[in-house]
Amino acid sequence: MACKRPAPDGGDAFLAAASPCCKKPRPLFTSIFNYEYLHKLGAGRYGVVYKARDRRTGETVAVKWVRPRRGLDHGQPANLAAFASERDCLAACRGYPSVVQLRDVASNPSNWDVFIVMEFVGANSLRDFIAGCPFSEVETRALMRRLLAGVRAMHRAGMAHRDIKPGNILVGPGFALKICDFGMATTAPPPYEPYMVGTLHYNSPEQLTESGLNGKYDAKVVDMWAAGCVMAELLTGGRAFTSETAKEHLLELVELRDYDIGSRNSLAFGGLRWLSPAGREVLAGLLAFDGDKRMTAEAALEHRWFTEEADSPAVLSCLAAIAS
């Protein structure tokens, strides 16, 4: 007699086949039919993310369907190399509070669809809170402390994210920050792909050179530049860079270098004259044009801007209220 499974409740990724076959999923995968579709959260270049409920535990989770190599249709072979890379990077970061946590890997046993199941942090990213609304220096410091802790954890685990930006930083209760979307993450040494990766406005100077476009750059150092861009956006409430092409972006970065961010009289990012010398030192260190001189996450968190003053309860309460 044919075996029957409950049909998932909505969501095209969950309805890739009308009648799942009776064969058990691969040992490394659980069944996607363990999860009840709730609604779509968002889509990116490498996948679509859905909010779902684990039928076994009742936990709300985020489920990422990894796009196939060819086209955007379900039932086609997934990009298993990208899937495995993202899964392994998330697995290596288990237990780190500033990185979204892996819950499960699942498949549709009737076709080629594969899924990464993660904790559900919330529907908003840091991008939703930055637009047109700058944070104070003490708020920025508290948020950068959390972000850099996540970057440090990734780097200690031997990986680089390569697409750090506000849209890939989820905001949870209490304004907890969780780095997500490891679709471009890597544990491999250079050289990397011979083309631009990540998001243009967060690409570092070395990524835009001929050597960088051939994949010859330090991916962890690239992450630190992107973290510096996030810091600048927190302080200004707007995008750090606005160029439309790689050539224009590189020109913007050369201009930024000439502005000398570390100087009190710098015109970078509108001047930021109210930023303390210690805060300016961190910003300049993260956005050092020369990658060899750029701050590491470890060094940044050991800087006096972070060590000489803890985040006050008033600041933490204010951030929690903003996130609620």
Rank of each mutant, 00 (worst) to 15 (best):
C3R: 14
K4T: 13
K4N: 10
G10R: 06
G10M: 05
G11F: 08
D12R: 15
F14K: 07
L15G: 07
L15H: 13
A18E: 15
A18G: 09
C21S: 13
C21Y: 07
C21M: 09
C22I: 05
K24G: 01
L28K: 14
F29Y: 15
T30Q: 13
T30G: 14
I32D: 08
L38Q: 14
K40L: 14
G42N: 07
G42Y: 09
R45W: 04
Y50N: 15
A52H: 06
T57R: 08
T60A: 11
K64G: 04
V66N: 02
P68M: 13
P68W: 12
R70Q: 10
H74F: 15
G75I: 03
P77S: 10
A82D: 13
A84R: 14
A84C: 05
A91F: 12
C93P: 01
R94D: 05
R94Q: 14
P97N: 06
V100Y: 05
V100K: 03
R103S: 08
S110W: 05
V114M: 09
M118P: 00
F120V: 03
G122F: 04
G122P: 04
A123V: 12
I130K: 02
P134H: 11
F135V: 07
T140I: 01
R141E: 00
A142H: 01
R145K: 12
L147A: 01
A153K: 00
M154L: 15
M154N: 01
H155Q: 09
H161P: 08
K165F: 02
P166M: 03
G167N: 08
G167K: 07
N168A: 09
N168G: 09
I169Y: 09
V171C: 07
P173W: 00
F175Q: 05
A176V: 09
I179V: 15
I179E: 08
D181V: 10
D181P: 06
F182A: 07
A185M: 08
A188F: 11
Y195T: 08
M196G: 09
M196E: 14
H201A: 14
Y202L: 05
Y202S: 12
N203M: 15
N203K: 10
P205M: 10
Q207V: 08
Q207A: 15
L208Y: 01
L208F: 02
E210S: 14
G212C: 10
K216G: 03
Y217C: 11
D218F: 02
K220G: 11
V222Y: 06
A227V: 03
A227T: 09
C229T: 10
E233H: 05
L235E: 09
L235P: 11
T236A: 11
G237V: 13
A240C: 12
A240K: 05
A240M: 05
F241S: 07
K247H: 11
L251H: 13
V254P: 00
L256M: 11
L256F: 04
R257Y: 07
R257D: 12
Y259L: 12
D260C: 09
G262V: 01
N265G: 07
S266V: 04
L267S: 10
A268W: 00
L272D: 03
S276R: 02
P277Y: 04
P277L: 03
A278P: 02
A278D: 11
G279I: 02
E281K: 13
E281M: 05
L286M: 08
D292R: 12
E298C: 06
L301C: 00
E302Y: 02
E302R: 10
T307S: 03
E309A: 10
A310C: 06
D311V: 12
S317K: 12
A320W: 04
S324G: 14
